[in-house]
Amino acid sequence: MSTLTEAPPPLAPAEPEKRPPRKRGRFTPYWLLLPGMLWLIVFFALPMIYQASTSVQQGSLEEGYKVTWHFATYWNALSEYWPQFLRSVFYAAAATVLCLLLGYPLAYTIAFRAGRWKNLIMILVIAPFFTSFLIRTLAWKTILADSGPVVHTLNSLHVLDLTDWLGWTAGDRVLATPLAVVCGLTYNFLPFMILPLYTSLERIDGRLHEAAGDLYAKPWTTFRKVTFPLSMPGVVSGTLLTFIPAAGDYVNAELLGSTDTRMIGNVIQTQFLRILDYPTAAALSFILMAAILAMVTFYIRRSGTEDLV
């Protein structure tokens, strides 16, 4: 913009009458922004404002709700449901770490080793999205059924004794335990980890690997010093794309969990749909949002990838 307005018009004397059509051009960027802005206003800003207002209202369905700036709702919600908040953060973090551990090797393989199978493997990664979230999650109830082969195997290997001792499972079962919920979260959000990882790994110039090898780095050192640092944007966006929805998820806890694995998403759902306590539901949503925002900001600062995300 500045070059347009400040550049001296060298041809001005030759064609003094011709005022270039700059005026119209100047507003073009704003017109292009308009649809996006409208979308944000209608589907993000307005609901947020509405929700913010709801969270400081009091009343009942019959008498209606009035804004009373009752901020105590926030405090009450937090003091009542902090265990579910903590649990959500913990489960989401565990699922994110698992996703990273499972997803990185897979993304690496797809990016560098899959050759002509690349597209097929990518399709397989995305394939679960072709069925609904609910059905995918319910399928895990079959996989992890008490009398099923998975639990049977884990049992005979005494893995469940260990996880039981750690408090991840209960007795001889996996379903309706924290482990099942974390597994469900991991499974459901794994593609969100793999896709950004794959994208950032694929972008790495293969010659950098050669250069590292040429400079005496063994394959593992090359990975540690070159590949992994360069895939950090993928790691950061993958963990965010996994952690954020996982922290707010309620389906996995509902279907695979038990009373002691309920997450904050379940609480919000119950508050909103069953108890009809809209202010508390709205306040909980805001607290969740703020907590995630704070954690994400801290995380991005720490990983030093502000300019890469």
């Binding site: 307005l46 609904s132 609910l134 059905i135 909103f272 749909l273 709205a282």
Partner: peptide, 23 residues
Amino acid sequence: ATAGGTLAAGGLGALSGCGIPAA
């Protein structure tokens, strides 16, 4: 084909759609 989507949207969409004047 169930809507996991319906379900997911149920939570959010409903939250935002809570017009609550007196009955």
